Amino acid sequence: MLIEYREDRTALLVYLGTLMLEAGDQLAQLGGQRHRSELYQRFVGWARARGQAERVTMFHVNPEPGAQIHHSDPFAVPADKRSPVRRFRGRLAAPVTLWTAPGPAGLTVSSTLVADGDPGRLLGLIDAESDLWTAVEEAGRFAVAPLSPTHRQLADRFAGLFPSPGGLFAIDSWAETPYGPVPADGGGWVGCRLDEAREYGWSLLVEATIERVELTDDGGPLLHHRGRYHELG
């Protein structure tokens, strides 16, 4: 999480604060009690920079007295042992899209490819264990919407990196379609019919036919590159 939110410590603290409140509620329901300061230190305190500028990432190895604090991730895979394929993939900037299906279910996907033709086709790599794939397999159809820089938090929610109290679709504005909900403020969407899917590497390669295209004003793409979000310009 420190790596993912290295450029936005405020968002990380909001996320951890939400988890802290949820933990407090769950403990109360179970009849347990924790002092507020203990919960704060466990969920939030470890992520705050101490004695350093906020831009410095702090990694706490453990919560025990005398714990070591590092300025690099002590658990990171050594550079010489990282998958070269994954490192190469990280250098390919990819548009961030949201896939949804009736149910509803959704997933952030940064491996979407559109092939022009008559009809047009769409391919993408998704997690075979995701709720999205369960919904797509059952419905036989899904929607794909490109995300813009204003959708960073939404992208994190559907990627499982940000809390979603009340469910993934509980906040933001959504437009209902026969293929699944799409962001009401998005730059358009396509409705797809599932053709086939097969294992491809460690992912599931989904192939589909584009049945419907809806385009609105383009606000610019949200891009993913080397583990972080970017935008043009």
Score class of each variant (00 low, 15 high):
173 S>R: 15
153 Q>C: 11
150 T>E: 14
179 Y>S: 07
181 P>M: 05
5 Y>G: 00
198 R>A: 12
189 W>I: 04
137 E>I: 04
78 P>S: 04
109 V>G: 01
205 L>D: 01
92 L>E: 10
16 L>E: 14
77 V>N: 02
36 R>L: 11
116 D>V: 15
143 A>S: 08
209 T>G: 02
40 Y>T: 02
39 L>F: 00
145 A>C: 06
212 R>Q: 14
198 R>S: 09
71 H>A: 09
187 G>V: 04
168 L>K: 10
40 Y>P: 00
125 L>K: 08
148 S>N: 10
177 T>Q: 05
15 Y>Q: 14
208 A>M: 05
148 S>F: 06
97 T>E: 03
193 R>Q: 10
35 H>R: 13
83 S>V: 05
215 L>E: 14
133 W>P: 01
152 R>Y: 02
107 L>S: 03
151 H>A: 05
212 R>I: 11
64 E>I: 14
122 L>K: 02
115 A>F: 15
233 G>C: 10
15 Y>S: 13
19 L>R: 12
77 V>H: 05
172 D>Y: 06
50 R>E: 14
216 T>H: 11
218 D>V: 08
231 E>T: 14
160 G>P: 02
99 W>I: 11
79 A>D: 11
220 G>E: 07
158 F>S: 01
77 V>R: 10
204 L>V: 02
131 D>A: 11
131 D>L: 08
161 L>P: 00
42 R>D: 08
113 L>S: 11
52 Q>T: 13
184 A>K: 07
152 R>P: 05
96 V>A: 03
60 H>V: 15
68 Q>E: 12
147 L>V: 01
230 H>P: 06
203 S>G: 07
75 F>K: 13
223 L>A: 01
163 P>D: 02
221 P>R: 02
185 D>G: 04
42 R>E: 12
93 A>H: 06
116 D>Q: 15
140 G>H: 06
53 A>E: 12
216 T>Y: 06
104 P>C: 05
166 G>A: 00
93 A>D: 04
162 F>V: 08
123 L>S: 10
175 A>V: 15
89 R>P: 07
113 L>P: 07
6 R>Y: 07
79 A>F: 09
74 P>L: 05
141 R>M: 07
40 Y>F: 09
116 D>S: 15
50 R>W: 10
95 P>F: 08
162 F>P: 06
77 V>C: 05
62 N>H: 12
221 P>D: 03
202 W>K: 15
231 E>F: 13
40 Y>V: 05
179 Y>P: 08
89 R>H: 14
154 L>W: 00
111 S>M: 07
35 H>F: 03
82 R>P: 01
173 S>C: 13
27 L>Q: 01
172 D>C: 08
195 D>K: 12
40 Y>G: 00
168 L>C: 03
104 P>F: 04
101 A>Q: 03
104 P>S: 06
151 H>C: 04
2 L>W: 06
37 S>F: 08
128 A>Y: 04
